[in-house]
Nucleic acid binder design. Sequence first.
RNA 1: GGAGACGUGGCUGAGUGGUCGAAGGCGCUGCUUUCGAAAAGCAGUAUGCUCGAAAGGGUAUCGAGGGUUCAAAUCCCUCCGUCUCCGCCA
Length: 420
Amino acid sequence: MLDIKFIRENPELIEHAAKKKHINFDVKKLLRVDDRRRELIALVDQKRAEQAHFSRKVPGTTDTQEREQIIKEMQMLKADFQKEEDELKKVIQKWQKLMLEVPNVPDVTVPEGKDDSDNVEIRTWGTPTQFDFPVKSHIDIMEQFDMVDFKRGTKVAGFRGHILKNAGAKLTFALWQYTLDFFVKKGYTPLLVPSLLNRETFVGTGYLPQSEDDLYKTQDEQYLSGTAEVASMGMFMDDEIDVTVAQKYISFSPCFRREAGSHGKDTRGLMRVHEFFKLEQIVLCEASHETSVALHEEMTMYAEELMQSLELPYHVVANCGGDLGLGQVKKYDIEAWVPSEEQYRETHSASYFHDFQTRRLNIRYRDTEGRLRFAHSLNNTAIATPRILIPLIENNQQIDGSIKVPEVLQKYVGTDVIRD
RNA sequence: GGAGACGUGGCUGAGUGGUCGAAGGCGCUGCUUUCGAAAAGCAGUAUGCUCGAAAGGGUAUCGAGGGUUCAAAUCCCUCCGUCUCCGCCA
């Protein structure tokens, strides 16, 4: 959500934002509703003031006749503006609905484009792994070592179901523990948050009402979140927080995604599954663009550092306007090299929002002048399993069929090579 | 799942239809006093919307939403949450 005053003063910026993000949004319609809203507020406030003026006379009036006269007058006054009061209620509802649809303004450095094919590579690390033997996919390797059971996974969970076994499960636990330790050393506070959440938290983080189709919903009107970001931001809803020093959290949760728009995409393997696990970086900071940018770069750097420590070749792309969410100002994706596909695939996604989320969630802090302000929020993947297993296993396959374990993971896995 | 109690400002705690955004206390801020501090005294101390250049004005908000009424913290309904007891389960 943006500040209505800002929207009113800069309608052309919102228009550009919608265009750049390839989102349909009619600013003029919002402004018309806002004009009516303010008109009605002025009118109703004035009538209410009149009413309050008379109302205050009632208790001091002991004369029954006079008293009844005042009440009669007030009855007429009330009947007079009941209509406007009812309309105001409706207009405010309409206004709030539209306000939730206003896109945040993307940064000028965000490249133009309509989808992920227009994302721009900004740097690479490492070189795509070279093999002097036929490369196997993670599916073949993992099935060979009984690290995964897709057949029984779909038996119990349906389409995209999978069960991690043996080294597949061990590697996963190792990655979680390693990543948690990594970020705790960076000063992040660990959180283990729920995924089964109420609607408000999704509206607050910007996932609803836009992406209703992507979420699983329960019969109790709760939703399953696709990222720990939702609970980690929602936990501060309506709070006054301290961001003298940016608050940094490393947050773990199961994640659920319906993948409604991706039927037929990545149907095999661990690339795109309905249920997975993720450690997420969540940061709340003061309302300063410079601070947001600096922290955005920092959290991206940390993720890169983690990838480097795992010895995984990757590149970083700046997401184009059309690939940004409603609330995102700017986003970098980290994509790891996947040998079997001979291309980079997304493993991390780092974005900042300015006060888009905190305004919806009402998360504020006091600045040095003592004024209440909406904080800024950012988030980035720390590690997402099982997806990260794909580049991890494929890039580390050996000619003898075994899988090399990256050095940093060895103490967590308990071996330097997986061979049976 | 059953029975009951409760939800008021930063905290505590009054208020059961009318001059109540809300007494008192605590805390906090400023001033007075003091060499300084404490204590004391005085003053101030919520947030949103809206009008205004500002000063300031208006209005809304007592868990949330709806209703009754000229008027709701107070009455009615729904929901959410907390606590106590019982039951059930890990």
